[in-house]
Amino acid sequence: MSRPDETGMAMDAALEGRMIDIRRHLHRHPELSNEERETQAYLRQALVEAGFATVRPIAGFGLAVDIVGTAGPSNRKVVIRADIDALPITEASGVPFASLRSGVMHACGHDAHAAMGYAAAVLLDAQRESFSGTVRLIFQPAEEAEPLGGRRVIEEGLLDDVDAAIGIHVDPYTPAGRIAVGAGPYTLACDNFDVIVTGNSAHAAKPSDGVDAIAVACSMVTELQKIVAREIDPYDPLVVSVTGIEGGGAYNVIAPEVRLKGTIRSGREETRQKAWERLRQIFEGIAAAHGAHVAVDIRRGEPAVVNDPEMVDIVQRAGAAIVGRDNVQTAPGWTAADDFAFYSEKCPSVYFRLGIRNADIDAVYPLHHPKFSIDETALPKGAMVLAEAARAFLAKPR
Rank of each mutant, 00 (worst) to 15 (best):
D194C: 12
D194A: 14
V195N: 06
V195R: 06
V195S: 04
V197A: 00
V197S: 00
G199E: 02
G199F: 00
N200M: 08
S201Y: 01
A202N: 01
A202I: 04
A204Y: 01
A205G: 15
K206T: 11
K206C: 04
K206F: 05
P207W: 14
S208Q: 13
D209W: 06
D209H: 10
V211C: 07
V211I: 15
D212R: 09
A213Y: 08
A213H: 08
I214S: 01
I214Y: 02
V216C: 02
A217K: 13
C218Q: 04
S219M: 06
S219Q: 14
M220K: 01
V221N: 09
E223M: 15
L224E: 02
L224V: 02
L224K: 02
Q225D: 06
Q225N: 10
Q225I: 10
K226F: 13
K226R: 05
I227Q: 03
V228I: 14
E231M: 03
E231W: 13
I232E: 01
D233F: 02
D233T: 13
P234H: 05
P234M: 04
Y235N: 15
Y235V: 13
L238E: 00
V239I: 12
V240I: 15
T243R: 10
G244I: 05
I245F: 02
I245Q: 03
E246S: 10
G247K: 04
G248A: 11
G248K: 09
G248R: 10
G248T: 04
G249L: 09
G249N: 10
G249V: 08
Y251P: 03
Y251S: 06
P256A: 07
V258G: 10
V258A: 12
L260G: 14
L260W: 09
G262F: 05
G262T: 05
G262C: 07
R265V: 12
G267I: 11
G267W: 09
G267E: 10
E269C: 07
T271R: 05
T271E: 06
T271F: 10
T271C: 07
R272Y: 12
A275T: 06
A275N: 11
A275K: 08
W276K: 12
R278S: 12
L279I: 14
L279P: 11
R280H: 06
Q281R: 11
Q281K: 11
I282H: 09
I282W: 15
I282R: 10
E284D: 13
E284S: 12
E284V: 11
E284P: 08
G285P: 13
G285N: 13
G285T: 08
G285M: 15
A287K: 06
A287I: 10
A288G: 04
A289Q: 14
A289M: 13
H290C: 06
H290T: 05
G291E: 03
G291I: 04
G291S: 10
A292P: 03
A292R: 01
H293S: 04
A295P: 00
A295H: 01
V296H: 02
V296G: 02
D297C: 03
D297Y: 01
D297Q: 11
D297A: 05
I298S: 01
G301Q: 08
G301P: 04
E302Y: 08
